[in-house]
Nucleic acid binder design. Sequence first.
DNA 1: AATTTTAATGTACACATGTTCAATAACATT
DNA 2: AATGTTATTGAACATGTGTACATTAAAATT
Lengths: 186, 186
Amino acid sequence: MSKHDLRVVKTKERIHYALTECLKEKPLSRIKITELCKTANINRGTFYFHYQEVGDVFMEFFEEIMEDLKDSYEEPYRHNVFLDVKNLDPDTVRIFHHIKKYEDFYSVIFSEKVSISYYYMFFDAVKEVLEKDPHSEKIDGPRDFFFSYTSNAIIGLIIEWYRRGFRDSAEDMSRNLVFILKKGER
Amino acid sequence: MSKHDLRVVKTKERIHYALTECLKEKPLSRIKITELCKTANINRGTFYFHYQEVGDVFMEFFEEIMEDLKDSYEEPYRHNVFLDVKNLDPDTVRIFHHIKKYEDFYSVIFSEKVSISYYYMFFDAVKEVLEKDPHSEKIDGPRDFFFSYTSNAIIGLIIEWYRRGFRDSAEDMSRNLVFILKKGER
DNA sequence: AATTTTAATGTACACATGTTCAATAACATT
DNA sequence: AATGTTATTGAACATGTGTACATTAAAATT
C-alpha cells in the first residue's frame, strides 16, 4: 500500500470527491460503500483494499482539519487559549473562527447518528491545544481531569452553536465564552 | 402498535433480553439485527415492526436510565447541582454515583463507534438537571450557552473517567469536580 | 526498455439489510 | 364465547456487506 503510488493517489482522490458529492445528497450514516464506489467509478474491492467503512474516508478529511485547528494555535501566532482568564480578550480566541471556516464539516461531526469517534478526535485535538498553552503550566490538581473538563466545556458551547445552525458569528461565540469564563473572576 | 398489548410486551422483553446477552459477547456496533432476532426467537419482520436498527433497542434501556438520573436530583432529595459554588460540598454531588451505578451501560455509551445520539441524550439529561436547579435562576447572560457549557464540562470529566476504566470512586470524582469549580472562587 | 512489484479489477459466494404482503394466531373488546 | 383487531410470522426479492482469489494493468525500479 505505497502511499505515494500514483494509482493510490488517484483512487483516493476519486473516493474523496465521491464522498463530498454524496454528502450533498444524504447524511454520512446513510451513504453506502457500493454507492460511494459507483460515484467514484472504482471497484468495490479497491475500496476495501484501503478502507473498512465509509467513515474511514471521512476520517481522512477530518485529520487535515484537526491539523488546521492545531496550526491556528501554533507559533508565531500566540493566540490566547483562554486559560489566562485575567487577560482574556474575545479577539484572541481563534477556535470559533476555525469552526466557522469548516462549518460544513462540523455539521457532519455533530449530526445525529454519526459515530462518536469524530467527537473524540475533535475533543482530543482541543485538549491538545489547551495542554500546549503556556499558561497550562500553572494548573494544579489533577491535570487530565482539568483539561478534559475545560475542553469539553468549550465543545459544549459549540454543540449549542451547532444546534442553532451556526447562526451566531464567531465573534459572538468568543464573547459568550469570555463572558462565562470571567464570571468566576469577581 | 398498542403499547400494552401482551404480544408487544413479550417481544420487547425478548429483544431486550437478547440485547443484554449479545452485549456480553461483542460491542453494540457489531451486533446484527439477524443475530438479535435469532437470540430473541422472534421473526426479523417483527423487529422491523418495532425498530429500525439495533441502536433503537438500546435507546429504550437508555431512556429508563436517564429517568433515574433526573429522579436522583428530584425532590425531596435536593441534592446540590454544583451551580452554587460557594456552598458546594463533594458529598452532595450525586451524578457520579449514578454513573457508577450504571457503569456497564455508560461504558457502551462512551465506547468508540457507537452513535453520538446517546451522547446527546445524556447531554440533554444533564442539562435538564442543571436547568432545574434553584440556583440556575441567578444565571445571567446567554442561558443556553451557559448550561451547554457547564453540562458538557461535567461530561468531559466523565469521559476522562471512562477512559481510565472508571477506576476512580464516585467520591474521588466529586472531589475533582469541586476542586476545579472552587478554583475560580478565590 | 525490460523487469519487477503491486494496486486495481472482475467475479463469486455466504450472509445481512430493508422492504413488502398475504396468512395466521394472539390479544382485547363486547 | 363470539367478534373484531392487529401483532407476528414466513416467504420472497432486491440490494448491500464482507471476504477471497486469480487476472490484469499501471506504476516503480533497474
